[in-house]
């Protein structure tokens, strides 16, 4: 019962985050919303696993938490450098020696 209440709350928060991801005027708004959606997914996985008596879902949640972090940082790095490698390497590859 209480798990159902918590799941409903998190689902409502998730839909609000989706609204922000669709509306967000800047790319950073969308990224923030994407991060929040990822967190909501982790919490949902844990809660749903507990509600249905299969808490093994938590392992998927751990994986998803780590992936979420890496994804956000990768997108931020892409914004800054326009590439995921070092800017230095990009210069070296492009320069005709």
């Amino acid at each position: 019962m209480m798990f159902a209440v918590a799941i409903l709350g998190v689902l409502a928060a998730l839909s609000l985050a989706v609204i922000r991801a669709l509306k967000g005027p800047t790319a950073f708004d969308r990224l923030l919303a994407a991060n929040a959606i990822g967190t909501s997914a982790i919490v949902l996985l844990a809660l749903f696993g507990f509600m249905t008596g299969r808490p093994e879902f938590l392992d998927i949640g751990i994986t998803y938490a780590l992936l979420n972090m890496i994804g956000t940082l990768a997108v931020l790095k892409f914004f800054r450098y326009g590439a995921l490698g070092h800017a230095q390497d990009a210069v070296k590859e492009r320069e005709p020696e």
Binding site: V5, A6, L8, G9, V10, A12, A13, L14, L16, A17, I19, R20, L32, A33, A36, S40, V43
Partner: peptide, 13 residues
């Protein structure tokens, strides 16, 4: 916790 979570999401919107 669910209430806090929802409040944060409302703030984000």
């Amino acid at each position: 916790g669910a209430a806090f979570y929802l409040i944060g999401a409302i703030g984000m919107t």
